[in-house]
Amino acid sequence: MIKKSVSLLLLALVVSLSFGQNATLKGVVKFKGEAPKPRLISMKADRQCDAMHGGKPVEAEDVVVNQNGTLKWVFVYVKEGVKGKYNPPAEPVVLDQQGCWYHPHVFGIMVGQKLEVRNSDPLLHNIHAMPKKNKPFNIGQPVKGMKSYYTFTVPEVMVPFKCDVHPWMSAYAGVLDHPFFSVTGDKGEFEIKNLPPGTYTIEAWHAKLGTQVQTITVKAGETKTIEFTFERKK
């Protein structure tokens, strides 16, 4: 029994390797110029939120420049050139509300994939999504541990989320009908795997600094490295 499954697994691996001559796209998003002073959020008016942060203000995630001079929370995705249909993964994307804050601030999700919005705070949050192409929703989660689920029906970059109870809370979802997207983290890096050979338009989106576009061509099995650089507007 075990043998059989192991051999099946091996077979699957071989098959995927032989057909998986797909490319990988990776790189970093750099920030040019002096990093702006982060906007400070004080949660004074909501005593419960304030207490969770020990009464200290929290830095807003509008423009987060990492230690290595890269930019966090950039949504990098394939804008044009994807052919074929991709089924959404079964596991949901989680948007957590904790400490009166959204985690993560920016994320990607596929059309038809479940979005799980979770309340980890013992107080009211409402998830107010204001998409333009999808159906907007607005739902309250008055107690800790509540979960609500959504799926998006059409691609849309980006869908803004807001908590009206705590107006400083904001998050963005990039809704796509394919899995080729990535969000930069603490090192400013992104990686899009399994990209079939071809020519693509890649866009990097940032909530405050706008978008940038590059056109690339990848060959089978190639690992291509590209770079985006954002600058402060004005």
């Binding site: 009211l124 607005n138 309250g140 008055p142 107690v143 541990g145 509540m146 979960k147 609500s148």
Partner: peptide, 9 residues
């Protein structure tokens, strides 16, 4: 009333 909690809306 998901989870038995009536929604505020």
């Amino acid at each position: 009333a998901e989870g038995g909690i009536l929604k505020p809306e």
